[in-house]
Design a protein around this nucleic acid. Structure first.
Lengths: 243, 243
DNA sequence: CGTGAACTTGACTAAGTTCAATAGAAGTGG
DNA sequence: CCACTTCTATTGAACTTAGTCAAGTTCACG
């Protein structure tokens, strides 16, 4: 099975190449390498921090590839309780919908560049290049794996285990891999309340649990948004429920 | 976009038509309608209640379509804590994997017939019939929607809200639809501990919460495994966090 | 019937939430 | 550069929901 790779071209770039532009001078934001550098016809969009670019239950008119920055996807209950279902970073995509409306909202956690592809255009693209469909299927399948892992976390792990899992995931190593090297730095692009809403906890519990991990000697925190993994092996054991 | 529909033929059926058989006389278990009734070359398998047919981290050698019965998909932690990530029923599929190994285990909740498609065969099928790829993508996307809904449940809903959501989901109406008619009966194919592990609770809490819903007049339970939705509107409000 | 498994109930415990106050960091304007 | 505001993060104490442990019931099946 040949694999489609999407190459990200950092914006702003090639201002004249895109066929439309919503917010910023357009750029080619992705290239379908296996199809002879065909342009992924799309619009480059700058989303400022805190700005919502997808709203749950609105018509699903477009599909986005993240070029740079970080976005959070979330769902809310009537009384304001929120669950963040995932964070998407450069290369990630957001908004693949079979249904007519979005099933979640999405908001930029920091300044974020997106590559916007309209629904109709995605459909045409998919029909023209079978590899795109393959790529989307692979992405969806791997998101599904991540979602199942997160259900295990939300349904069955303790606060300590959740934080340990989260830090390791940010460090780029899943549960199947060996832990990252000691001293690995993890930058938290998101605020405490986002971490809390992602892990199904409160800000206070996140704060207290991080303190406890610090006291245990597993991490240090030079800044509230920078965490150094001092003992990744211990974190790994914690995350797996062997702590 | 033309849609692929998979028609399920109840087993045992057409004993000579399949090209291999693992457990029971083979049957054609699904037909690709849009491709002129081409046979989905596959093996029909009977899985007895409680039997595990997919094991996490084993090589992902096959893909299954459920013909009849119910299966549970789950992940476990080292100390035995378990999270059921979903139940699959007739028409559902299990085991779509991009990775080389399964990311979860699967077990029959009741006697279940499966349609087993080997990985290589699925790949060939997908290449021959583009509609199959489309179908898989759609299925994966809708599973992703369900997974996000479940993350909201596990991360942010109370025990009462979880049970209400669960009952409505079993009754076949998601959160976007109007509630099912009063008097709708929901059969629980799975035991209490499965419900608990699916909702991120304990058996005791499931039991107590069902009692509380009974006392509130929202449901009745002629049998432990049969729940009548007396006030679906109230359940709907509870499930949405407006209870 | 009798035995075992599934389910329910009760009393107690604990993990995490809530509410409230404090501390720290980051900007803003004089 | 420093006072002042504001936002974010942390800490503390009381509380609550759901979990734990230990009996009971009920029901299906031999």
């Amino acid at each position: 099975m040949n694999t489609l790779r999407i190459r990200l071209v950092p914006p702003p770039h090639n201002p004249a190449a895109c066929d439309a532009c919503a917010v910023r001078p357009a750029s080619i934001c992705a290239v379908l390498e296996d199809e002879g550098l065909e342009r992924l016809a799309a619009v480059s969009v700058l989303v400022p921090e805190g700005h919502e670019f997808i709203t749950e239950s609105e018509p699903a008119e477009a599909f986005f590839v993240i070029t740079s920055g970080t976005a959070k996807l979330f769902k809310m209950l009537a009384d304001g309780r929120r669950q963040i279902t995932g964070f998407a970073q450069a290369g990630g995509f957001v908004g693949l919908a079979v249904q007519e409306t979005y099933g979640f909202s999405a908001e930029a956690v920091e300044e974020t560049y997106l590559c916007r592809v309209s629904r109709g255009r995605l459909r045409r693209l998919v029909n023209t290049f079978p590899a795109v469909k393959q790529y989307l299927l692979q992405q969806a399948a791997s998101e599904l794996v991540a979602a199942q892992e997160q259900m295990l976390l939300l349904g069955r792990k303790t606060a300590h285990e959740r934080l340990a899992s989260f830090l390791l995931a940010l460090a780029g190593r899943g549960r199947l891999h060996e832990p990252p090297p000691a001293g690995t730095e993890v930058r938290l692009a998101m605020a405490r309340d986002d971490v809390a809403d992602y892990l199904g906890l409160t800000v206070e519990t996140v704060s207290r649990t991080l303190k406890s991990l610090r006291l245990a000697g597993y991490v240090t925190m030079p800044l509230p948004s920078l965490i150094v993994l001092v003992d990744p092996g211990a974190l790994r054991r914690l995350a797996a429920g062997q702590g």
